[in-house]
């Protein structure tokens, strides 16, 4: 339910970046959202669209790359996606694996026009 705050943080960051580059128009912002970030991509897109409408940045597209939750088993040197089976290593079954991805809430890129 905090997607509107996240959308607003993305817009603030885009505006800051745009100010550093006078004369360019930002057309798209790319974000990376991990499965553990607590952010629902659909709600984020909706909130982003509502916030950007009618502002100086409109039209601005949002592209979301969803990142799965990944764990790593150091002894096996194996990284795997976490599904319903839990966090144990699918090869050696040891339960102590380390988080290797999924909490991303990152600004990845901007697409701009001169």
């Amino acid at each position: 339910m905090h997607e509107l705050s996240i959308a607003s943080a993305i817009l603030d960051a885009v505006r800051k970046e745009a100010e550093k580059r006078p004369g360019v128009r930002v057309r798209k912002v790319g974000v990376r959202i991990g499965a553990l970030s607590g952010v629902e991509p659909e709600a984020l897109s909706f909130g982003f669209g509502a916030l950007v409408q009618g502002t100086d940045l409109d039209p601005l597209a949002l592209e979301i790359e969803s990142v799965p939750w990944r764990q790593r088993c150091p002894p096996c040197d194996l990284t795997f996606d976490v599904k319903d089976e839990g966090l144990a290593c699918p090869r050696c079954a040891r339960p102590e694996t380390l988080m290797a991805g999924g909490d991303e809430l990152d600004l990845a890129y901007l697409e701009v026009e001169e």
């Binding site: 996240i6 943080a9 993305i10 960051a13 970046e17 990152d106």
Partner: peptide
């Protein structure tokens, strides 16, 4: 269209 990589946290201001 040019792509500019950013690679920073969305919540970097909060952080």
């Amino acid at each position: 269209m040019d792509r500019i990589p950013l690679e920073k946290k969305v919540l970097s201001e909060n952080d």
